[in-house]
Design a protein around this nucleic acid. Structure first.
Length: 861
RNA sequence: AGGCAUAUAGCUCAGUGGUUAGAGCGUUACGUUGACAUCGUAAAGGUCGUAGGUUCGACUCCUAUUAUGCCUACCA
């Protein structure tokens, strides 16, 4: 089993392709570590399509690559370095990450190759390659010039652990058990003076209680808002409330966005630390008072009590419970977490770069609505549309070092220059008073998905070359918004064309209980440990067999077992042909025997069926089809019969030939599912192990069925099936001969090779004629077969025959009832009526025959 | 809160406006060890989530409802 040789052969095959028909990109894995089962599934599905296409003379330039995965990789590297990471300079850290990248990249590429993917490695791209940087800068500048990118001070989600802004999409809301803190603010209608404050006890008129989940932000409060129509608080509007533990007084204001039903109906407004408060603050002209720092600790300023300055949010909250008299209630609520760092995110007002994606969205919506771009499964289209219709500006700047630098430059007084390269920057400067040395380069880098959004372009030489529309994209449904939509948006913007015609979304690979695989749950199945033990084919088939579009696949070692059994079955089947000397003498003989013609027609049908299923992306069904054919149709039926044809000199040679032909076709049909084993057998059995021509060189079987009545085939299979079935109820007397008769005519010369084959498969002796002893008469198609049973009595036979009549009559009555229904006859399709009639008459025949047998039995006494 | 999806055999899931709804695994019985670290055959097991409607005919289409999952959302 030399898989390396197969890979070499396939690479050679790719090199010889002069012109590819289309491009397809492999979703670039992150250089964070190694491949997981999701990658393996993704590769298996694409490789199935790529190989199938190649077998049908359609060549796909499947382009591999890896992604730098900014935040994720930087985080991992820092973690691996430990505390020393903080002492490294920016450049040193970047260097460390490059080292990590090299290792991870080479590991990933080896793993992909082990899977047997038919990728064009000549065009391998890493997302920080020079040409990618070039394209990224170009697109950024274009967008900036068209006012589609802008820098702005807005409230964004801030990750206090990673100390960077992140986009809305990277926020994961989690339902957690938290607390609702009811805090009392004392209230007065008079403007408080210094004296009042000193003498506060006498001064208070009333109080207002505010419910919050974030008591530590009270020092940033700038108002308390109530609904204007809320009768409980109307009289307090315009009064002043005192923030506990401070001498700060804030106004009670009216705002319609307050929901009287929530909490106490009065909400504290903290414009610097909450999205809604930020909006309210803008309208009411409130200052943004920052009390929580970028690292998630309480600020050192005179608003925050000394004792909690510098504490983390969690610690501060604990302290405040002791310092302030408050009522605490349990509350299950949603809290924003960073999907990478796993920490609670802080709303924070900072200056960031944004893409106004809402202006790009209409085109992306149109291409899907006009069916230029299809998504499989279709129901994702609704989600896609919904998201694009409600899309918000995309925050693309990240305060980390690993990534594409934002091509912006600042002067000391805050003027911004955005330039693709130094030349263009100089040109811009020439028209101003600034010099290059006056400028400070932006240190922020771009969100990784910004360069990913250009992936179909950058992998194929854009902007120097125009990018072709890819045939398809295969990726996980979890990154539809992160990646797929953004590629569509960018491709429409840069190229004014869709990036791909079809998007196939597969689900996640979960464990057998339907849980996400994660290290903490210790339920991760590493594809590499499977690949160490098993052939890649086994992993691939297990994944494909499980994969239904858009649905998560539950994966367990049982699936590997099933797949391995299939693999072994194929090996055993081929082994058997070798033992039969099928391959030694190569006679090219026309098949005449119905059994051989039948299997030829079956493989013809199979190749058509699988072709349709692959074209429709029905990977699961296609896998099932090839599995069923190989195991049941070919091994259990055809070969079991062929064993007897090989014993007979008349049929021996043509059967050997049939087996050779059918297996050659079967190897092709199986190839996209099991590339290694099929290539190996192809080389061994058909290419004399010369390793010159890959199986991909020869083509998918597009055959024409041989016209033949399948009556004989049915007879053989029916006899075998029925007698097997009866033999599980009765004990067949194998010492006696099975007599059989034909219903209607008595052609002495007829060969009955169908009955003979059945008799051989059953290991019973068949002979024409009536039985002269008591036995079980069976009606099988046109035949009466007298099955000898040990210790049979007349009553038992009658009983069995009667059950046959009973069962058949039940169905017959139903069918007749339907046929007598005028409505049915009027409305149903002609074909359906015809079929119903035929079934009814067949049933009637069987019933008649069986009754006759009962009569005969009685006549015999 | 809204959107989407799912509900079918003991388990994991396919599938279809038309007789009697399938597969793999599991269970039970029998057979085989002559390609099969087995294999084969057979059996048991399902009012296709619930309730209505459309139709000659609904597991399939429509409506409502329940449960579960995912996505989206500013809930103090």
């Amino acid at each position: 089993m030399d898989q390396k040789k197969c890979n070499e052969l396939w690479q050679k095959f790719l090199l010889k392709i002069k012109k590819f028909d289309t491009n397809v990109i492999l979703p670039p894995p992150n250089v964070t570590g190694s491949l997981h089962l999701g990658h393996a599934l993704n590769i298996a599905i694409q490789d199935l399509q790529v190989r199938f296409s190649a077998l049908n003379n359609y060549y796909i330039n499947w382009i591999p690559g890896t992604d730098h995965a900014g935040i994720a990789t930087q985080m991992l590297v820092k973690k691996s370095i430990g505390e020393k990471a903080d002492n490294l300079s920016r450049e040193e850290l970047i260097e460390e990450i490059w080292q990590w990248k090299k290792k991870s990249e080479s590991r990933i590429c080896t793993q992909i190759k082990t899977m047997g993917a038919l990728l064009n490695w000549e065009q391998y791209t890493f997302s920080l390659n020079e040409n990618v940087t070039h394209a990224v800068r170009k697109v950024f500048c274009d967008l900036y010039q068209n006012k589609l990118i802008e820098k702005d001070k807005r409230m964004i989600y801030w990750d206090t652990k990673l100390q960077t802004a992140i986009s809305n999409l990277e926020v994961q809301f989690k339902q957690i058990d938290g607390h609702f803190y009811h805090i009392k603010y004392f209230v007065t209608s008079k403007i408080p003076t210094k004296k009042d404050i000193k003498d506060s006890d006498k001064f208070f008129e009333t109080s207002i209680t505010v419910a919050t989940t974030r008591p530590e932000t009270i020092f940033g409060d700038e108002a308390i808002a109530v609904h204007p129509a809320d009768k409980r608080y109307q009289h307090l509007i315009g009064c002043y409330a005192k923030i506990p533990l401070t001498n700060k007084w804030i106004l009670i204001i009216a705002d319609e966005r307050c929901d009287p039903k929530k909490g106490t109906g009065a909400v504290k407004v903290t414009p610097a630390h909450d999205f809604l408060d930020f909006e309210i603050g803008k309208i009411h002209n409130l200052p943004q008072t920052v009390v929580i720092l970028k690292n998630g600790t309480l600020a050192h300023n005179n608003l925050v009590p000394k004792s909690i300055q510098g504490l983390t949010i969690v610690e501060a909250r604990k302290q405040l419970c002791n310092l302030i008299d408050m009522h605490i209630e349990n509350l299950n609520h949603l809290v924003p977490y960073g999907d990478r760092s796993g920490t609670i995110l802080e709303p924070y007002v900072t200056s960031q770069w944004f893409v106004n994606v809402e202006k790009l969205a209409p085109k992306a919506l149109r291409v899907v609505r006009e069916n230029n771009l299809s998504i499989i499964p279709e129901y994702w289209i609704k989600t896609y549309e919904h998201w694009l219709e409600n899309i918000e500006p995309w925050c693309i700047s990240r305060q980390i070092c690993w990534g594409h630098k934002i091509p912006a430059y600042y002067t000391a007084n805050g003027s911004i220059f955005v330039a693709e390269d130094e030349d263009s920057l100089e040109k811009q400067l020439a028209q101003t008073k600034y010099k290059r040395k006056d400028l400070r380069e932006e240190t922020d880098v771009l969100d990784t998905w910004f360069s990913s959004a250009l992936w179909p372009l950058v992998t194929t030489g854009w902007p120097n070359q125009k990018t072709q529309i890819n045939d398809f994209l295969v990726t996980g449904s979890d990154i539809l918004f992160f990646w797929v939509t953004r590629m569509i948006l960018m491709s429409m913007y840069c190229n004014d064309q869709i990036p791909f015609k079809t998007v196939y979304l597969h689900g996640l690979v979960q464990d057998e209980k339907g849980k996400k695989m994660s290290k903490s749950k210790n339920n991760v199945i590493d594809p590499m440990t499977i690949l160490e033990k098993e052939n890649a084919d086994i992993l691939r088939f297990a994944l494909l067999y499980n994969s239904v579009p858009g649905k998560n696949a539950r994966f367990s070692t049982k699936d590997i077992d099933t797949s391995r059994r299939f693999h072994i079955k194929i090996q055993n089947m081929i082994n058997w042909t070798k033992l039969q000397n099928i391959w030694t003498k190569q006679h090219n003989i026309k098949y005449k025997h119905f059994w051989n013609i039948w299997i030829f027609n079956e493989i013809t049908k199979l190749s058509q069926k699988v072709k349709n299923q692959i074209n429709k992306w029905q990977t699961h069904e296609a896998s099932q089809t090839v599995y069923f054919f190989t195991w049941n149709t070919f091994c259990s039926w055809y070969i079991e019969g062929a064993k007897h044809l090989l014993k007979n000199e008349d049929t021996k040679l043509e059967t050997m030939h049939t087996i050779r032909v059918v297996i050659s076709h079967l190897l092709h049909v199986l190839h996209p599912f099991l590339p290694f084993i099929t290539e190996q057998y192809w080389q061994e059995l058909y290419q004399n192990n010369e390793y010159e021509k890959s199986i991909l060189k020869s083509k998918w079987p597009n055959l024409t069925q041989i016209q033949i009545s399948d009556e004989k085939l049915h007879t053989t299979r029916e006899i075998v099936k029925q007698i097997r079935s009866w033999s599980s109820i009765f004990n067949i007397d194998r010492n006696k001969t099975v007599k059989f008769m034909k219903f209607n005519e008595l052609n002495e010369n007829e060969e009955y090779d169908d009955v003979m084959l059945a008799s051989q498969m059953l290991n019973l002796n068949f002979e024409r004629g009536h039985a002269d002893f008591l036995c079980l008469p069976l009606t099988i198609l046109e035949l009466i077969v007298y099955l000898p049973i040990k210790n049979i009595t007349k009553e038992k036979i009658k009983e069995k025959l009667q059950t046959i009549i009973d069962v058949k009559s039940k169905t017959l009555i139903m069918l007749n009832k339907r046929l007598q229904d005028d409505q049915f006859v009027e409305n149903a399709d002609f074909k359906i009526i015809q079929e119903t009639k035929e079934s009814a008459s067949e049933l009637q025949d069987t019933i008649d025959m069986t009754s006759k047998m009962i009569q005969n039995l009685e006549n015999k006494k």
